Simulated scan of single mutants.
Amino acid sequence: MPDTILPSQLDAVPECPDCGKPEPFCICNGVDPVENRIDVLILQHPQEQDRLLGTARLTARMLSKATLKIGLSWPSLSKALGREVDPAHWAVLYLGSAKVADLVTDRDVVAIDRKGDLEPSQTAVLRGIEGVIVLDGTWSQAKALWWRNAWMLKCQRVILGPQQLSLYGKLRREPRRDGLSTIEATGLLLTHLEKRPEIADALFGAFDRMLTTYREAVKAHPEFLPKPRPKRDWRRGRKPVRRKS
């Protein structure tokens, strides 16, 4: 999580019941859901509380077949989804330590096995996917979701090799070049699996509008910007003492 705290002024602003963002940051008016064939299940870590720049709820709102669940663990995929499904026909997007750049492939979406190696028949494996699981949170939070839900090993693991950096830019730095927002990752994944570039166009367009609205809102209301936490003297484990002259 960013080393910031939200100001009390923002906490008092009414939020949109659909996207969860404070009203000045909401773009729900005019959002048209995309008809997707492949189901999407977004599992959000409960500590992922970036109301201003988070995209999980917007992603779910943008898709006709999407479910968002908040928590740390579920007994099975069916329990998380709320209906009976076969996890063998689902894929889970989890990068972990795997990188497309380390594999001999030019694909944007890659299916890998438990050892992190390429699945031998990429086209056949990806063609049979009926649903995808996307983990929403920081890198450490996504790792926690992965390890707490052992049933994910029954799903096909996939990773992304995006050609472009995230639209977040300097607003939210990622530790790796292939780090994307939830809405970007979902758009790229569905577009590849369904062979429909209009899905990525719609989701990326909504994300771009969200970022534009964010910049305009904080420019008009600078008091909404996160306040930095007091700096600490990490060597002593306490706040630095200001000496009197």
Score class of each variant (00 low, 15 high):
3 D>Y: 08
8 S>T: 15
10 L>M: 11
10 L>R: 02
12 A>V: 14
12 A>N: 15
13 V>Y: 07
13 V>W: 14
13 V>I: 15
13 V>P: 05
14 P>M: 14
15 E>P: 02
17 P>D: 02
19 C>D: 06
19 C>S: 03
20 G>P: 12
20 G>N: 08
21 K>H: 11
22 P>Q: 15
22 P>R: 15
25 F>K: 02
36 N>L: 08
39 D>H: 11
41 L>A: 00
44 Q>F: 07
45 H>G: 01
47 Q>A: 05
48 E>H: 02
50 D>H: 15
51 R>M: 14
51 R>K: 14
52 L>T: 10
53 L>K: 15
56 A>P: 10
58 L>Q: 13
62 M>K: 14
63 L>T: 03
65 K>G: 00
68 L>H: 09
69 K>G: 03
69 K>T: 11
70 I>W: 04
70 I>Q: 09
72 L>C: 05
73 S>M: 01
73 S>Q: 07
75 P>F: 08
79 K>V: 11
82 G>T: 13
87 P>V: 10
90 W>K: 02
92 V>C: 03
96 G>C: 11
97 S>D: 09
97 S>C: 01
99 K>V: 01
100 V>S: 12
100 V>T: 12
101 A>C: 10
101 A>S: 13
103 L>W: 10
103 L>S: 04
105 T>C: 06
105 T>N: 02
105 T>Q: 04
106 D>V: 01
109 V>C: 06
112 I>D: 01
114 R>H: 11
114 R>A: 03
114 R>Q: 10
116 G>A: 07
117 D>T: 02
120 P>Y: 01
124 A>L: 14
127 R>G: 01
127 R>V: 06
128 G>W: 09
130 E>W: 13
131 G>H: 03
133 I>E: 01
134 V>I: 15
139 W>Y: 08
145 L>Y: 01
145 L>M: 00
148 R>N: 11
148 R>Q: 09
150 A>F: 00
153 L>Y: 09
154 K>C: 03
154 K>R: 14
155 C>F: 02
156 Q>V: 14
157 R>W: 01
157 R>L: 00
159 I>N: 00
160 L>S: 00
161 G>H: 04
162 P>F: 06
163 Q>N: 07
164 Q>W: 02
165 L>R: 12
166 S>L: 06
166 S>R: 03
171 L>M: 11
174 E>Y: 00
176 R>D: 06
176 R>P: 06
180 L>W: 14
181 S>W: 04
181 S>V: 13
183 I>V: 14
184 E>T: 07
184 E>I: 07
186 T>I: 08
188 L>Y: 07
189 L>Y: 06
194 E>V: 15
194 E>W: 04
195 K>F: 07
196 R>Q: 15
198 E>P: 05
198 E>C: 05
202 A>E: 11
205 G>A: 12
206 A>L: 13
207 F>N: 01
214 Y>K: 12
215 R>G: 00
217 A>M: 08
219 K>R: 14
219 K>G: 09
226 P>H: 08
226 P>V: 08
226 P>F: 10
228 P>Q: 04
229 R>Q: 12
231 K>V: 12
235 R>K: 13
236 R>K: 14
237 G>Y: 11
244 K>P: 02
245 S>K: 13
